[in-house]
Design a protein around this nucleic acid. Sequence first.
DNA 1: TAGATTGTTAATCGATTAACAATC
DNA 2: TAGATTGTTAATCGATTAACAATC
Lengths: 206, 206
Amino acid sequence: MKGKVSLAVVRRLPQYYRYLKELENAGITKSSSRDMGEAMGLTASQIRQDLNCFGSFGQQGYGYNVSSLIKEIAYILAIEEDRPFIVIGAGQLGGAISASNNLKGRGFKLVGIFDNDSNIVGKKIGNTVVRHIEELADFCKAEKPKMAVLAVPQGSATDAAKLLSSLGVQAFWNFSGHIDAVCEGAVFENIHLEDSLMTLSYRMEE
Amino acid sequence: MKGKVSLAVVRRLPQYYRYLKELENAGITKSSSRDMGEAMGLTASQIRQDLNCFGSFGQQGYGYNVSSLIKEIAYILAIEEDRPFIVIGAGQLGGAISASNNLKGRGFKLVGIFDNDSNIVGKKIGNTVVRHIEELADFCKAEKPKMAVLAVPQGSATDAAKLLSSLGVQAFWNFSGHIDAVCEGAVFENIHLEDSLMTLSYRMEE
DNA sequence: TAGATTGTTAATCGATTAACAATC
DNA sequence: TAGATTGTTAATCGATTAACAATC
């Protein structure tokens, strides 16, 4: 069933989630697909279509209850409970991700940071001590993180993913170039910040 | 003419660019749409369609010359010359972006970093000293950066964008929440890392 | 009840893929 | 020349939008 929902739809769910959270914080308890669409620059149709991929969450004549829709989307995205994840690479970017508070409550909680640079190992980022990469195998056996952030130098990402996959990691949030299907059954979310920057360059030309 | 090319096409150009650079580094001088498609997981048709939005860069019976196609795409994306940009917010993320070497040669060069925290002002990130935000107006008048990275706390992004827009900044690479059309004529590339993380959460469920 | 807004089906639109003549 | 591969048109596919009956 899940396989039938297009990625375009899935990528809009966090947008809805974000906007609904705003409404909730503003004390607004209900919203219609029309209102939401206007505020977010989408059509009401699209919002209803998207949501109805997963169920019927609204009520005719009324609209959607903000806080229950938030709960539904959180359930769909599987972010109701934070699962343990680790960060590989404690450089600038790895450090920024490790220190970010915006990621809490998005389905994951940081349990470990690893690096191979002995100048960094032992230091704290937020509340988490950076461990040496040699400790990785034991750590994974004990903590069983299912997701890993890759923030390592370009060339090492594939090897890191293979190793982590063998240690039980199933999903990768990869900032270190492009990886695709190198490990059986693993899921990759590749972030190419440079690509995004280049499209900005294109669009600012007139 | 430019308005007629869809964003989906534009977002694939950096992918092509990246892959072609790899080929070039490997000493490969020619490639066909078939080869490229296979390597990148796209159809040959799509690659030819995409490129033909901008011109005819190949040769029948031969394919594409790698280094000249790289140059063509660089020209289209307007990344042949690096334009000055500034970073607003020298926290973890702003620091990571400022320090990143991956962004060089992508159309922009860092000329200034600004923050309002006097503990950070004066420190160096890479080769660039962090300036106080009070210096921003004078700096912009002198250096005329056309792009700014927003890496500030959520609530302050819109105000920052408005200010920068009034100082001549036309494009924003925004990591601080969502901004859209708050300034006449400005272009926004909104990066929502949390959204990306939530889609990963969804996809790792079975 | 009347008004509003959903869930859902049908119509449209755009993007991707296939096909093929042009040509190197 | 024969083979390969482009540029480009036509066909298909999927995603978005419009419409409307169901119903709160």
